[in-house]
Amino acid sequence: MERRSFLRVSVVGTAAAAFGGASWLNAFSAAADPGDGPYGPLLPADGNGLRLPDGFTGRIVAESGRRVGASDYVWHPAPDGGACFAAADGGGWVYVSNSEVPSTGGVGAIRFAGDGSVVDAYRILDGTDVNCAGGATPWGTWLSCEEVDRGEVYETDPFGVADPIVRPAMGVFKHEACAVDADRRVVYLTEDVPDGGFYRFTPSNWPDLSAGTLEILIGEPGQTSGAVTWARVPDPSAADEDTRHQVDGAKPFDGGEGCYYAAGTCWFTTKGDNRVWAYDADAGTIGLTYDDDSPLAGVDNVTGAASGDLFVAEDGDNLEICLITPDGIVAPFVRVEGHENSEITGPAFSPDGTRLYFSSQRGPSGQSEDGVTFEVRGPFRT
Rank of each mutant, 00 (worst) to 15 (best):
V107T: 13
G353Y: 00
V119K: 05
E314R: 02
W206E: 11
G90W: 03
F56I: 09
L323P: 03
H76S: 05
F56D: 08
R150Q: 10
N274I: 00
F268I: 10
G256F: 07
A16G: 02
F112Q: 14
L214I: 08
A86G: 12
P168L: 02
N48C: 14
D370N: 02
Y279S: 06
R67S: 14
A231L: 04
G222H: 09
K174V: 03
A283G: 05
A32H: 08
G363T: 06
A297L: 15
F374C: 02
R123A: 12
S97I: 08
G304V: 00
D235Q: 01
P77R: 00
R335Q: 15
A348P: 00
L50S: 11
A31H: 07
R362S: 14
Y73V: 08
A263R: 05
V330N: 03
P207N: 05
G135N: 13
P38E: 01
P194H: 15
F358D: 02
D120H: 04
D254G: 04
S99V: 04
W139I: 00
V247Q: 06
V228S: 01
S204M: 08
D183F: 06
S237M: 07
E152T: 13
Q361G: 09
T202L: 02
S237D: 07
I329C: 00
N26I: 10
V302Y: 12
Q361R: 14
S64I: 02
S64P: 11
L42D: 08
A169M: 06
E146L: 10
P53H: 10
E100P: 02
E2G: 15
G106W: 04
P77A: 13
R8P: 06
A136C: 14
L7F: 09
G135Y: 11
Q223R: 03
A70N: 07
P203M: 11
C322E: 11
W230Y: 01
E147Y: 05
P53R: 13
R232S: 12
G316Q: 03
T285K: 06
C322W: 07
G114S: 13
M170T: 07
R59D: 15
W142P: 06
T229H: 11
R377K: 13
Q361A: 11
Y290S: 09
P326S: 10
A70P: 00
A62R: 09
G258Q: 10
G378M: 05
P221R: 05
P295D: 11
D181R: 08
D273H: 15
A177N: 13
A262M: 05
S71N: 07
V186A: 15
P347T: 10
V96C: 13
V372T: 01
R111Y: 14
D192F: 06
N274S: 08
R59I: 11
G13F: 00
E314Q: 12
S342F: 05
P53E: 12
A278S: 14
S204F: 06
A88Q: 07
L189T: 07
T243A: 15
P34E: 10
P53W: 11
A86N: 00
Y279P: 12
D33A: 11
I344E: 03
A31N: 03
E314P: 00
A231E: 09
T202Q: 09
R167L: 10
E176Q: 09
G212T: 09
E63N: 04
Q361M: 12
V119D: 14
S117H: 14
F333T: 01
G116Y: 04
P138H: 05
G298V: 04
P252G: 00
A306L: 02
V107H: 06
V11N: 03
T14Y: 09
L217S: 10
